[in-house]
Nucleic acid binder design. Structure first.
Lengths: 383, 383
DNA sequence: TTGAAAGCGATACCAC
DNA sequence: GTGGTATCGCTTTCAA
């Protein structure tokens, strides 16, 4: 049924010397058998042994010649290489990997928006995280495999993954459990300490939130509206915790507007609720990722002048923040650095063997722009 | 050096019955050997033969039991499954793939921004294309491997790819040539007709451009500014060709402002140049992907009222278009459909064997919104 | 210097 | 029904 390459008159290497000519008599398809031979077939791939026969050498020699290993005479090496090149030989990657015992493949899945998978790719945070992960992986000789979150776990079981990144895992995420149970190292952006094979990259959302609130207070804010998702995501939970605590400590009023569903539209609606009521705040901190220019536009629609009537800070990775009018202060969690740190952890495990479950912390970055500076720009300290 | 799993006292299956107990005496590391044994090692993976020995059955039987193939008694099947489960057995994906003759992996590379790789992932078009491709691939039982475009070809040679998607290939792209030469089917968004293993998905940019210009003319435009990249990309070239031809035919003035470098900032600068001069156009068609809200904001800055003084159409996939003020008319090339069509072509080749080089065409979609309707919204026909 | 043979781990024949 | 055996294509050890 699922039978792989089948060759007519195929010879084992042992017999290659006696009966076979330079090339075997006939090949069947490399791809699946086509019933009735309707479609043309892809040319069969040239194997190492084909090259060996053609060159009148052994598999071993060709392999060594091509890989630059072993001690071969220059002539033999050149001859082997030339023959391989002429025949269009390409080593079978799967076979090499099997031999090597690894796949050099790292899976990448985003879990937060499991129910609304199309959403996450629209968010700069995930986009940048994905892209940076792919880069980092490649720099370490690995490649990233996208694991769309809407697929059942079994769909991935057949993938030869050396390790996986699970972004925004759910609490006790079955996916994480499963990979861990399979002995596949997992890196997440949530602490999973103590689990064999579990690694994580952390962001101190608590400190970051306090940093933003401090900044706003320093700029004169006395009534801060916060827009945050009420998903179970760590960052949201930590942000709210920090906000409550900070508010109590400092005696500055903060209020929270929740965003229940993912996506720009609901988030924007929450922003409007937060600033649209009769009880007008003098500062706004949008934790949910929304387009910063849209936020200031909304503020403008509601009669605010940013930053005079309303200080605005967005937790966002959107490059457009600096193009808004006024440019918007952003809190970045630095996805590129998170990605690099996560991949690094994984690669270390993969390349150097098992080490204790551990994590790394990536700092956030508050980029202060005009939207949160009541004093003229020059007075603010960037960074 | 790169030695794979090495087991102390490893037994071949043939000898399994005589000397070996239920489990082999000792295992070395599954991962690389750790010099000095400093770090703990990952537990060795359980192999089919380990399960077989433990269950007192043969590899074949366990395999059949687990895969639901063969004719096995219910007891044996249950016993095999139970043992496998208890031992935490996970089949080695690489081995299966080698046996199966395919990897179920599709590579995905974006070529347009080879020199500025960080740019493309910021653009909704590529983001959506990537995501939709991953989805489509997975729906067909394949997974997508991200191939960052800044890496040299050799980095990818080790990946067991069944096929690849090359987005925005350069003319005679060496990467495409190489994959084709290796016998790997390639799908691109540019016509590659006649090349064995070459498939493509097309967009009729010419017709799309004319459609936009017709729409603008219909709304009263008499002097249309076009902002387009002067990269060699097909879509840009076709758009400019169509524009020149349309302009000549209709006797309506059009002028082009080029964008030399990729990214939002240069594009936005080009928009400003296009509308900022003393010679003010009455319509603007932005072919380069820029944030639509940013475009109308720029227009406003330059004293235009959209759509009264300036009709605006953007070729963009940005969801924010409808949130701009006014909502912006967009020309979408429908990346999700392009992705689906491309993956479908590939999967057909992979699953059904070689068929002639061929392509598919995906229509564009003009979503008319207030920004390009001089007449009140109700008068416009959506779609 | 070169090559035969033994695997990597799993699947599918084909006898028993 | 069950299990031995040959492969998938390649790398590496080890003997010649």
């Amino acid at each position: 049924m699922d039978e792989p390459q089948r060759r007519v008159g195929h010879q084992t290497e042992a017999r290659s010397g006696d009966a076979a000519g330079p090339r075997p008599p006939a090949y069947a398809a490399t791809r699946k058998h086509t019933p009735g031979g309707r479609a043309q077939q892809l040319a069969p791939r040239v194997r190492l042994i084909d090259v060996a026969r053609e060159a009148g050498l052994s598999k071993t020699t060709i392999s060594a010649a091509l890989n630059g290993t072993g001690r071969l005479s220059d002539e033999v090496r050149a001859h082997a290489r030339e023959t391989a090149w002429r025949m269009g030989y390409r080593p079978n990657a799967t076979a090499r990997l099997l031999r090597a015992g690894h796949s050099k493949l790292i899976g990448f899945a985003v879990r937060e928006y499991v129910e609304a998978p199309w959403v996450y790719m629209e968010l700069p945070y995930f986009t940048q995280l994905t892209n940076a992960s792919a880069r980092a992986a490649l720099e370490h000789g690995h490649a990233l495999v996208l694991l769309p979150n809407h697929a059942p776990r079994e769909e991935w079981a057949d993938l030869p993954l050396d390790a996986v990144c699970i972004v925004d895992p759910m609490p006790d995420d079955p996916l994480v459990e499963d990979f861990l149970a399979a002995g596949t190292p997992v890196v997440t952006d949530r602490r999973v300490e103590g689990r064999r094979g579990g690694y994580w990259v952390e962001t101190d959302y608590h400190a970051a939130t306090r940093g933003v609130l401090d900044h706003l207070a320093e700029q004169g804010a006395r009534d801060i509206a916060i827009v945050a998702p009420d998903s179970g995501a760590v960052y949201a939970r930590d942000a709210l915790l920090a906000q409550a605590q900070w508010s109590a400590e400092r005696g500055i009023r903060t209020r929270v507007e929740n965003v229940a569903t993912p996506g720009y539209t609901p988030a924007l609606a929450a922003v409007e609720r937060a600033i649209g009521g009769p009880d007008r705040p003098d500062a706004l901190f949008v934790v949910t990722e929304v387009s910063p220019p849209m936020v200031v536009a909304a503020a403008r629609r509601h009669g605010y002048t940013v930053p005079d009537d309303l200080l605005v800070v967005c937790a966002s990775e959107d490059a457009l923040a600096e193009h808004a009018e006024p440019p918007v202060t952003t809190l970045s969690t630095q996805p590129a650095r998170i990605a690099a740190a996560g991949i690094k952890l994984l690669v270390e495990v993969l390349d150097d063997g098992y080490t204790e479950s551990r994590g790394a912390e990536v700092p956030t970055r508050l980029v202060i722009r005009a939207s949160s500076l009541r004093t003229p720009l020059s007075a603010g300290r960037p960074g």
